[in-house]
Design a protein around this nucleic acid. Structure first.
Length: 483
RNA sequence: GCCCUGUUGGUGAAGCGGCUAACACAUCUGACUUUCUAUCAGACAUUCAAGGGUUCAAGUCCCUUACAGGGUACCA
């Protein structure tokens, strides 16, 4: 069996986008499933837009998602360098090879000349295709242009009347007519390669066997196949994934909210949930079980079964999934992850590590993202409570509430505040006591909850009491009484 | 304009010529509860973009149209 090698080739002109993350994931899954290698190549040829910080962000995001690469700029490998800017010296010899074999030629046309061609094509309502006027220059013409100081680009000589056919792993058979492809530039006038040329050379040298990427590259594929063939290289297999769209069916962009993996993480999404969610965009588990680890997904993965259409990035489902992961996460790990959000809003030192963990444990349930916890826990900190809405007037000030609170104050010395079980029991007794007087258990609890948290909903009350302790508890009850 | 791809419910999707179109999110209803959440029990596409054709039989195959996305650069 041939060696399976796949790659992800992001350009560091921004933080790692979720779309790129999904492409990386599918490559990773494919490699895992087929015992292949997953290669990371940084395409930083566009020096204007590339930036070291983005490269770092790509590394960090990929690692956080658990998509570890076997070869890459940082870990090396036998087909390096893996950073395109360090590969500039290897392209010219291939360009030369193509010129010598008649597959490419120098073109001296100026931007103005090209513009004129384009305008004419538009005026005639025809598709613009380069005129090929430099394809067969005489040595004299060439010399003349060079004497004029014109810097040539190198164009690929696209063969006529060729049907370029390839079997896409996800889309099926795709056909292109070579007559519709103009002679495209492979080397710019500053002697650097264009994207279409550089990828082919890199993928070829890195022995990439399967190219899995977004469908925005479909039309490039025809050009790239032509280059592989001209070079006498083996053409890899291609698989083109549908795009990820926003809810309004436009491309997912910043105005829709977070788009970079690191943005999601900052907001409090778990990377485990994020990869899981993104895997479900275009792929469906064979057993219907959607919540799965990357390893489980890899075992079930089949590139051939990926949906060939675009899919919408639905935040609702991501939120649900993130909530599922929060509920199931190990409490110690969760506490560590959620701590920064708490620290940012409150004086975390008011709680012992054990109390902190307990608090996280009892407030985790309704969370969809980690940062949500902040709004659910203000009453664990400080002496006083802030009352939400009309809680003070509508809940606390009622006759029944006051009755309940008075009773609580009478009993409180008999409560063991360090014993959660006991608190639970005492509250139960309180409920039955008032129930016999015709007060609903709900109302009894509301009174206490309102007094100590300032709201009518939240975590389990006995746990809250247990965490804040006797002093805070009694003080707050006293303050809630209208004497 | 031209080229390529796609279209199953609000969303992700299963379905690969043959029973009442899986499953999940969202939504709604009910139960439970110490509130919110969670959980549990239900409801939710007479129909697969529209129209035509092939077939005993079509979401599944073919054609046309519509719509959407991508490409058409000395950007990647």
């Amino acid at each position: 069996m041939e060696n399976i090698r796949v790659r992800i080739a992001p350009s560091p002109s921004g933080n790692l986008h979720v779309g790129t993350a999904r492409t990386a994931l599918f490559n990773y899954l494919f490699a895992k499933k087929n015992n292949g290698k997953f290669v990371l190549r940084i395409e930083d040829t566009d020096l204007e837009r590339s930036n070291e910080a983005y490269t770092q962000n790509i590394y960090d995001s990929l690692k956080a998602l658990g998509l570890n690469w076997d070869e890459g700029p940082d870990v090396g490998g036998q087909y390096g360098p893996y950073q395109q800017s360090e590969r500039f010296d290897i392209y010219p010899k291939y360009v030369q090879k193509l010129i010598e074999s008649g597959h490419a030629y120098e073109c001296f046309c100026t931007t103005e000349e090209l513009e004129a061609e384009k305008e004419e094509a538009i005026a005639n309502k025809k598709a613009y295709i380069y005129s090929e006027k430099c394809r067969n220059l005489t040595p004299e013409q060439r010399a003349k242009y060079i004497a004029e100081g014109r810097k040539p680009v190198v164009r690929f000589a696209v063969p006529k009347d060729r049907e370029i056919v390839f079997n896409d792993l996800v889309k099926g058979e795709l056909k292109f007519d070579s007559n519709l492809i103009g002679d495209f530039v492979i080397q710019k006038s500053n002697n650097t390669p264009t994207y279409n040329f550089a990828v082919v050379i890199d993928d070829m040298e890195m022995k990439i066997s399967h190219i899995i990427r977004g469908e925005d590259h479909i039309s490039n594929t025809a050009k790239q196949i032509l280059i592989y063939e001209a070079l006498g290289a083996e053409v890899p297999k291609f698989g083109h994934l549908g795009m990820i769209l926003a809810t309004d069916r436009s491309k997912l962009s910043k105005r829709h909210g977070a788009t970079a993996v690191s943005d999601f993480v900052k907001q409090g999404y778990l990377t485990e949930a994020l990869v899981n969610f993104v895997a479900l965009l275009g792929w469906a588990p064979s057993d219907g079980e959607e919540i799965k680890t990357v390893d489980a997904i890899a075992a079930d993965f089949d590139i051939t079964k990926i949906s060939s259409s675009n899919s919408v990035f639905e935040y609702d489902k991501l939120n649900w999934m993130n909530g599922q992961y929060i509920k199931k996460m190990d409490i110690k790990e969760l506490t560590e992850k959620i701590k920064p959000y708490i620290e940012e809003a409150y004086n975390i030192n008011e709680l012992t590590p054990a109390q902190l963990e307990h608090m996280v444990e009892v407030t985790r349930e309704p969370l969809t993202i980690l940062s949500d916890i902040v709004k659910d826990i203000p009453f664990f900190f400080g002496e006083d409570v802030e009352f939400e809405g009309t809680v003070k007037e509508d809940v606390l000030a009622t006759e029944t509430s006051q009755k309940v609170l008075n009773k609580v104050l009478e009993d409180v010395d008999g409560w063991d505040f360090n014993n959660l079980e006991d608190l639970h029991e005492k509250l139960g007794e309180l409920r039955t006591f008032f129930k016999e007087q015709g007060i609903k258990p709900k109302e009894t609890m509301w009174a206490i909850r309102a007094a100590i948290t300032g709201r009518t909903h939240g975590a389990d009350i006995s746990a809250v009491i247990n965490i804040i302790g006797k002093d805070k508890f009694t003080n707050r009850i006293k303050k809630a009484l209208i004497s």
